[in-house]
Nucleic acid binder design. Sequence first.
DNA 1: TAAAAAATACACTTTATCAGGTATTGCCGT
DNA 2: ACGGCAATACCTGATAAAGTGTATTTTTTA
Lengths: 211, 211
Amino acid sequence: MIMKYKTVIVDDHPIVISGIAGLLSELDNIEIVEKFESGIALLDYIEDNKVDLILMDIFLPVINGVDLCKTIKQKHPKIVIIGMSSQSERSLVMQFIQNGGNGYILKNASFDEFKECIYKAIDGEIVFSEEVKTIISQPLSEDLERIPGLSRRERDIALLLSQGKSTQEIADDLFLSFLTVQTHRRNILQKYKMKNVAELIAFLLKNNMLN
Amino acid sequence: MIMKYKTVIVDDHPIVISGIAGLLSELDNIEIVEKFESGIALLDYIEDNKVDLILMDIFLPVINGVDLCKTIKQKHPKIVIIGMSSQSERSLVMQFIQNGGNGYILKNASFDEFKECIYKAIDGEIVFSEEVKTIISQPLSEDLERIPGLSRRERDIALLLSQGKSTQEIADDLFLSFLTVQTHRRNILQKYKMKNVAELIAFLLKNNMLN
DNA sequence: TAAAAAATACACTTTATCAGGTATTGCCGT
DNA sequence: ACGGCAATACCTGATAAAGTGTATTTTTTA
């Protein structure tokens, strides 16, 4: 008798669930036992039922994929979890893996990629779809400069700058000296080698460093 | 004999295509004649083949959904086009409709919503899934301000500002007088009631008004 | 084709930013 | 316990931006 891998799909898009279900039905040692549109329902389910493999969207309402993965792995380290999303950011993928994820697939991956990744993952490998690979490998080799982060205070100030506040207004808002804010401004500009606040804000927003 | 609506699906996620195809296969007067992962392939196809209904993702590589819709409608106004995306922004939905789109569905819509929207759309209605409705109706009542766009020149200048260029540098880049650039800057700031360039850049980037 | 919008240009005043250097205090981690 | 980083603060001069007013030409569009 063949043991089938009991598989659960979690995605808040019914369309995607049905797409993946259709794909997985072609794999003969995979059995889809349940589908969920939220992580909470999944957490309940795995307490009472055996699950071998979870395919989950990273962007879920209420609880995000990274936290969900972490929570599941703490109690059920043997469950294989593969993350999915439409766009991928390097840092997000790394976070997911660091929290126990066994792989990451972009939704624009081909059917073959999906199948291959799933097979390899249940075989114990950490798997990525092609595009994810290029995304996570490129900046690591070429881009030596891992951009330094903003300190707490610097983030406060940058945020207010993006709201059009002047140095004096920021000083008032944060109960600081005008001169202190001026120093922070200068430090931020120097840190990222920016000419002025306009360029800085554009840079920070594009790199998701505000909020 | 029943005429089936010849339907094409365009999405760069194979998984989503297969999901929608599965759904539509349940509708007996819909016939899926083709599936594409890019808009270019679609444009070729409709030149030589009869198509009644197109379901397209808005975020596509190479050509975006809004432009694609516009191009198709110019030559084939009778084709019913429904847009889809994972997240929806009010302005994007409106743009899509203004360019001839017959409806907009969020991918997290239920199967029933999908079916209903498709039926209504081929019946001549402009349709939206539930979540889209709430998104486009909320800001409409409360948020009177339909933000005016940047003119071509203003966009040029805003772009250079976001790159940290000074007024003089922009003037040199665009072969304009310093004073002209100054005037444009002022006009842009006044148009959006922004205090300074930092706030402006943040605003423009958040509203996808650069590039 | 007439009106509206956009692009161009000039002058002047006030205020803010940028860039340089310097220094003290507190906290975190090794 | 010490070094390093973060946060705080001060000074000054040069430069740039912001605020206000006006005006001509070109392009778009109703």
